[in-house]
Simulated assay, not measured.
Amino acid sequence: MVAQQVRPGDVLDARVLAAMTAIPREGFVDTDIAPLAYADTQLPIGCGQTMLSPIQEGRFLQALNLQSHETVMELGTGSGYFTALLAQLAGRVVSVEFFAELSELASQRLDQQGIENVSLQVGDASKSWSLPDRIDAIVMTAAYVSVPEHYLHQLKVGGRLLAVTGKAPAMSVQLIQRVSEWDWQTESLFETVIPAVINAEPKTEFKF
């Protein structure tokens, strides 16, 4: 997967490639679709949800550039595989999942891999989620029309947030960095399409 899909997909960061090599993707999907675990596609994981494709995961991680001392928040635990990759690269992961069933499965899978630097939480984080302190990085594994302002203020100065924004078929991966107390810089990285965040309804558009 890494040699044939991820690296040719412009993922060249050695730490990201090592993490994706170290974590067995088939350990995070149901046994009946395990033969497809390394396919370049978004696989079903239950509750009507899917996991990101390997290339999407690699490119997201490369863009985040997580460091071993940092704390990262993940919105959408899903299967737990991307959570495991985050845990390989960061010092601590806080991951929030809407479906308790998926969070419990992810917890079991992370335990099987001996991953201990992850805090799993359950709830609706579509618009906000309380944290005790500001955080180094936030990654959203489902798409928004626009990023909730709450999460921009959860970042430390120098922190960054990665999100997919827009509506299918025109979605863009955005990397937003907090450069000062009241300033953020946004960089559009590449286009992709992923499912929308549950309960993150688009704002009403008024026509005159």
Rank of each mutant, 00 (worst) to 15 (best):
E104Y: 07
T71Y: 02
E74Q: 15
D133Y: 11
S107Y: 14
A137R: 15
M73Y: 07
S128P: 00
I135F: 07
S130Y: 07
Q112F: 06
T77V: 11
Q121Y: 00
Q112V: 05
R92S: 13
N117Y: 05
R92W: 11
T83A: 07
L102H: 08
D111W: 09
D133G: 06
R134M: 13
K127T: 09
A90K: 08
G91P: 00
E101T: 13
S103I: 00
S107I: 05
G78Q: 11
T71M: 12
S103E: 13
S95N: 05
F99W: 07
L85D: 06
I115S: 08
L66T: 05
T83R: 09
L89M: 10
V122Q: 14
M73E: 00
D136H: 15
E97R: 04
S68R: 14
F99R: 12
T83C: 14
G76C: 03
G80F: 09
L89A: 09
G76A: 00
V72R: 02
Q108S: 15
V118T: 04
A137Y: 14
A106M: 13
G91C: 00
G76S: 00
V72S: 07
A87W: 13
A143W: 07
E70D: 01
L105I: 11
Q67S: 12
I138S: 14
L131T: 09
V93S: 08
G78Y: 13
A125E: 03
T77W: 03
A87N: 09
L66A: 01
V93A: 11
F98G: 00
A84I: 04
G80P: 07
D124E: 09
N65D: 10
F98V: 01
S107L: 14
G80S: 03
I138R: 10
L131F: 11
G80Q: 10
Y81P: 01
